[in-house]
Amino acid sequence: MAQPCKQTSVESNTLLAISTNGQIKELNVRTLTEEELEKLKNDRVLVSEFKQQKLEKEAQKNWDLFYKRNTTNFFKDRHWTTREFEELKACREFESQKLVLLEAGCGVGNCIFPLLEEDLNIFVYACDFSPRAVEFVKQNPLYSTERCLAFQCDLTKDDLQANIPTASVDVITLIFVLSAIHPDKMQQALENLCKVLRPGGVVLFRDYGLYDHAMLRFKSGNKLGENFYVRQDGTRSFFFSREDLASLFEKAGFQTVVNEYVLRETVNKKEGLCVPRVFLQSKFRKPPN
């Protein structure tokens, strides 16, 4: 929940560090205020089973409508990926080596097009659940079939090997994607990704962490399950703990390399509020042969 900037939560030292440095990385989950603990404790009513099944059935439709409403204007281009994930540059054996990347859940290309501009020795496979999002990618002036292949895909059931050769990808980026998938189907999606990743290749992951502000601001009646919620537009979001995330990836055949909470504060200067954001930033490796 939002707090006035002059106040801090129970973890005052951590929040002060965030305010100074922009973000910090922690192995421990964010400590909640008594008010936040009480809110989560009292939020026990789940969305009906009928509505949950309807949301799952219409998941693709709801994301397609999201991109119809927002087109390419909702998310900012992610120029921070090469700063946060040095593997996008360092995993090459030699400087001129072409890097093969899969952006799973590419949206309208906010991650891939900055990468294609910055790195001339890269080929990107880009897939998304939403056909409309994929069309936006293909309409981008920077899209070229010589450097990029975009296609529609449901990671939980469509075989990626229909579009990508087996074990051919060096790096997979999975950024704010897994949280939108039903928890029962997350492992299927990860196993699908593992098939196209080469031995020794890595998945670079960033997504919503447990007790992020977005989780705490959901009102009663939006809860689908433990740490799983539905937004007003019908899209869904899961909030991960480090332990649950590592378990998911390891069961799908990956090794955990890095798995940390990223804690930040977003400041609303107009209202004088500090909003605590919690993300998980992780790296998982497919074991070498």
Rank of each mutant, 00 (worst) to 15 (best):
G105N: 05
C106I: 12
C106N: 10
V108T: 13
C111W: 00
F113D: 02
F113G: 02
L115N: 02
L116H: 05
L116F: 06
E117K: 15
E118W: 00
L120W: 08
I122F: 04
Y125I: 01
D128G: 12
V134S: 00
E135N: 14
K138F: 09
Q139N: 04
Q139T: 05
N140P: 06
N140K: 12
P141K: 15
L142S: 13
L142P: 03
L142G: 09
Y143C: 10
Y143T: 09
E146S: 14
R147G: 12
C148K: 09
L149V: 04
F151P: 07
F151L: 08
C153I: 07
D154N: 14
D154M: 09
T156R: 07
K157R: 14
D159W: 11
Q161P: 09
A162R: 15
N163K: 14
N163Q: 12
I164A: 08
I164Y: 07
V169T: 06
D170L: 09
D170T: 05
F176K: 10
F176R: 11
V177P: 00
L178K: 08
S179T: 09
K185T: 12
K185I: 03
M186K: 15
Q187S: 09
Q187I: 12
Q188F: 12
A189F: 01
E191N: 07
E191M: 14
L193T: 10
C194N: 15
C194A: 15
V196E: 10
G201H: 04
V203D: 04
Y208D: 01
D212R: 00
H213V: 06
A214L: 11
A214S: 06
M215T: 03
L216E: 02
R217F: 04
F218G: 02
K219D: 02
N222S: 12
N222I: 01
L224F: 08
E226M: 05
N227D: 06
F228W: 14
Y229G: 05
Y229W: 12
V230A: 10
R231N: 08
F238V: 00
S241A: 11
R242V: 01
R242L: 13
R242T: 02
S247C: 15
